[in-house]
Write a protein that binds this DNA or RNA. Structure first.
Lengths: 174, 174
DNA sequence: CTTTTGGGTCAGCCTTGTTGACATAGTTAG
DNA sequence: CTAACTATGTCAACAAGGCTGACCCAAAAG
C-alpha cells in the first residue's frame, strides 16, 4: 500500500466510489420519476398522487394508517391527494368490516388503469436496465439497495423473495 | 386472484422483480436524503442547498450554466439558493478569466467543511451498504443504476472509471 | 363510562420547483 | 464599430407537497 498518487491510492478510490454511488442515486431517481411526472401533469396530478395510487394498487384494501406508515408523511399531506383521488373516482373507500373506524382503500377500475399507465414507463426503464445488466448484476443491485434503505423499509423486502410479497407479513390487521 | 400462486409463473416473477426495483429506488432515495435533511434544517437550509454545495465541491470553479446543466433546474430556482449560499459565505464567485461574463463557483473553507459534514452521513450509508454487499454486488449495482439514468447523466460516469472523474470530459470551457 | 384510536378537516407556513418578462455586462460576428 | 448573441441576475406570480397545530367525530377498548 505504499504507492499513492498514480490513481492507485485506495483511499481516493474508495472516496470516488462512494461519491459515484451518491450521484447515481441522485440522477437515477430524478430521471426515473420524470416520465410519470409528465403524464401526471396532464391529469393535473402530481408525484404524490402516483405514490398513493401505486401503493394502494400494491396493497388492496390497505388502511389509511398503514398507507401512512409506508409513505412516511403526515395524514394532512396524504389527505390532500387522497381526497382528490377519491373524488375523481380512482380510489374507493370501504368501511372496515372488523374495525368500523377504518377506511380501507382500493383502486377502482379507472384507478387500476391509471396505475398501469403511470407505472409502465418505470417498469420499462427497469426492464431495460435489468436486461442490459444481467441477472447477476440485478442481484448485486438488490443487495446494495437493501443496504441503503432503513430497517422499517427493509422489512418489506426481507421475506418477499419468491412469494410475490403481496402482503408478506405486514398489514397491522386490527 | 385466480392462482399461479406457486411461484412458477415467469411473467409474474418478472413483474414482481420490476416492482421491487421501483420500490427499492423509492425507499432508498427517501432514506438516503433524510439524515442530511435533518442537518440542513438546523442551518435553515434545504435539500437544494445541499445539491449546490455538493456539485460545486465536486467541480471547483464550475460555471453557473454548467451547474444548471447538472441540476436540470431553472436559473431562477438555482439563483434563490445560490445567492443565499454566497451571502452566508459558503460559496465564492470568481469572474471568469477567459470569459468575463462567467461567475465561476467555488466552496469557501466554511463551504468545504459544510459539504463534508452534510455528505458524510451519505458516504457512510454507501460505505456500509457496499461493504456488506461485496465488490461484485457493487459492480452490479453500478451497472443497473447506469441503465436507469438518462443519457446526459450517463455520460458523467462513462469514462470516469479510474481517473477520478474530477472533470473528465465536461466543462464547456468557452 | 371514559379513554384511546382511526380518520378527517381547517388554517397557515416553508421549500423548491415552474413560467414569463426584463436588465446588464461581456463576447463575437459582420 | 455596431449588432447580435450569451452568461447571469432579478422581479413577480404560481403550484406541489411537505410541515405544524388545533380541533372534530365515531368506533373500539378498558
Amino acid at each position: 500500500m505504499s504507492e499513492a498518487k498514480t490513481s492507485a491510492n485506495p483511499l481516493f478510490l474508495r472516496e470516488e466510489e462512494l461519491r459515484q454511488g451518491i450521484e447515481l442515486l441522485f440522477f437515477a431517481y430524478r430521471d426515473f420519476t420524470s416520465e410519470a411526472d409528465a403524464m401526471l401533469a396532464k391529469h393535473k396530478f402530481g408525484r404524490a398522487h402516483h405514490r398513493v395510487i401505486y401503493f394502494v394498487g400494491r396493497h388492496p384494501r390497505i388502511s389509511v394508517s398503514d398507507l401512512l406508515d409506508i409513505l412516511a408523511i403526515t395524514k394532512q399531506s396524504l389527505s390532500r391527494v387522497l381526497s382528490q383521488l377519491v373524488t375523481d373516482g380512482f380510489i374507493i373507500q370501504h368501511r372496515g368490516p372488523r374495525d368500523g373506524r377504518q377506511r380501507l382503500l382500493e383502486l377502482t377500475e379507472k384507478g387500476v388503469e391509471m396505475e398501469r399507465q403511470l407505472t409502465e414507463a418505470q417498469r420499462r426503464r427497469f426492464a431495460r436496465a435489468y436486461r442490459e445488466a444481467g441477472a447477476e448484476a440485478v442481484e448485486g443491485f438488490r443487495k446494495v439497495m437493501l443496504g441503503i434503505v432503513d430497517d422499517p423499509a427493509r422489512e418489506r423486502f426481507a421475506q418477499s423473495r419468491r412469494d410475490g410479497g403481496r402482503d408478506g407479513g405486514r398489514e397491522r390487521d386490527q
